[in-house]
Amino acid sequence: MNDREIVLARIRNAVLHKERHPGAYRAPDGPGGWDAFADRLTSVGGEPAGPYSPSAAGPALRLRATELADGGRIVAEASAAAEVGHGPWDVAPSGGLPHAFADVAVAIVRGEIACAENGAVAVCGADAPHRALAVLCRHLILVVDPKRVVTSFHDAFDGLPANALDHHHVTWISGPSKTADIEQSLVFGAHGPLTLDVFAIER
């Protein structure tokens, strides 16, 4: 017998197939909407911005990205660039090694859905094919539609596009990268971005 058969045989000896799944979970209502999300995001160390109309968004984003970049390189995923138009950023090229983003100061990435309960934004593989970009950059800006803010994490999962899993990853991001591994002191920017901005832009 190979290991697969051994393990499965051991399991079959132990299980009865009796315990039923409890069924779908219904969470009680709570505070929702962009304002609730913005409060939560602030509490986890992120910066909410907006909501902006499509026309006002471009200038605000250009200003913030330039400020954060401090002369460094700014890169936007194509999906984000499509929403916010031209700016001081390069659009991430297809092909090439992910390592090429190691020097990026600011990355701009489209978020699919945001969750007020915990400040998390879903970044889907379809919008962020350069997975490394959002973690290698020093500063991350996520762009979300304020109408795509839901209350609970259950709603957030339900709200993912049907084909979300077809593009390798879906990454929920709640605040900037952090650690408290040295004497419980909270430090932002453990491995990933030191800051996280979430721009609400009406689509």
Binding site: V44, N118, V170, P176, A180, G192
Partner: peptide, 24 residues
């Protein structure tokens, strides 16, 4: 989400961990 809502709150009091990465 059932487990993710419980995990970080129980661990550190965060509403969710910074990165919840799902790869398929």
């Amino acid at each position: 989400p059932v487990f993710l809502r419980l995990l970080a709150r129980s661990a550190t009091g965060q509403p969710v961990s910074v990165y919840t990465s799902m790869v398929t």
